[in-house]
Amino acid sequence: MILDVFKHKLFFSFFKYIRFTGLSDKEHLLITFNLLKNRFVKKEGVIREFNILNFKSDAYCDKCYAYFIASIDISKRYGVDLEKNIGNVDLKKEILNQNELFNFCQIYFSSKKNKSFHWIAQELEEQIKAYHSKIEVTSLHIKLLKSRFDFHSGALTKKELESKVMKYLEDKDLRELMKNNSFSPEKQSTSHELGYLLNILMDIFEETKSKHVFLILESYLEKLHLIFVRHKVFYSTVYRKADRINISGIFLISKVFLRYTLLIKDFRYASAAFFLIDIGKYLQLKNHKKMISNTFPVYKYGSPFKYPAWTLFYFVEVLDLKISAKNLLKNETGVRI
């Protein structure tokens, strides 16, 4: 694993010229499922991360439990069952800050989507309601997530949710958006948080079918695509070149790009996402344990020397969406898009 320091330095230095590529999507999915099953998903929960020396973290990752639930159905489609690897995870905790609110909302939404976990959503709804008004939320994507929760729990109507989205995002360009989107007010937000925001916005659009929400989403994605045309990747700062790439960030942006392609059949976004996913495939293949670091190069700020579970879960999601986008293309080329 420690060799990644040297490999990543080399790959990043020649980023412009290295062809990032890997195995087929299904092969990477199976590698990742096995990795999650054997190393990350334990009876007590999902292990947060491994470091470059291959030591696992003591903590279990709450938000990864959400991604674990979301991945169960995907894993079954590829002949793997992640579900039996985990026991009853203790979620009865106080929600003390916006990050914990984010984690719990994520678990709430993913358990609501999966029938076997509906009971968790029911329990969490009360728990989140009890805390969420007392917590100061400064990050835009968590404000959006909280509003989405309020809509689901009946505290907001569709129109009110739409107004909230407009209030938070209208007239904010990408730069402004990123100023107020960090998990921690002292830190600059990255592509990671932006990826969350765009996916939450997509969720809200899918649930409300609001034209206004769609127009906001469309304008951000068009701008992001222009940035991709220029840099052929998203650096952690998103709108300019930087000395690192947040792999979780590019996976989350790929996710919204692919969802958008599936929605409006604009394959510019799918193509960009395919290139971004290739970086993840390449880094996974080059790693001795087939893990993917959160930051590329691995030693740079933003989870340095860490291989978190969430990066792998995002990878699973984008690979599955990529396969769907390819199927859409195969079925659609008879008719001009």
């Binding site: 991709f228 510019r268 960009a272 395919f274 080329t333």
Partner: peptide, 18 residues
């Protein structure tokens, strides 16, 4: 109009088949 960049090889392969 829209600005396009490189088309990923996998997309090219799919549409070439048609």
């Amino acid at each position: 109009g829209l600005l396009y960049t490189y088309m990923h090889k996998e997309i090219q392969e799919i549409i070439t088949k048609t």
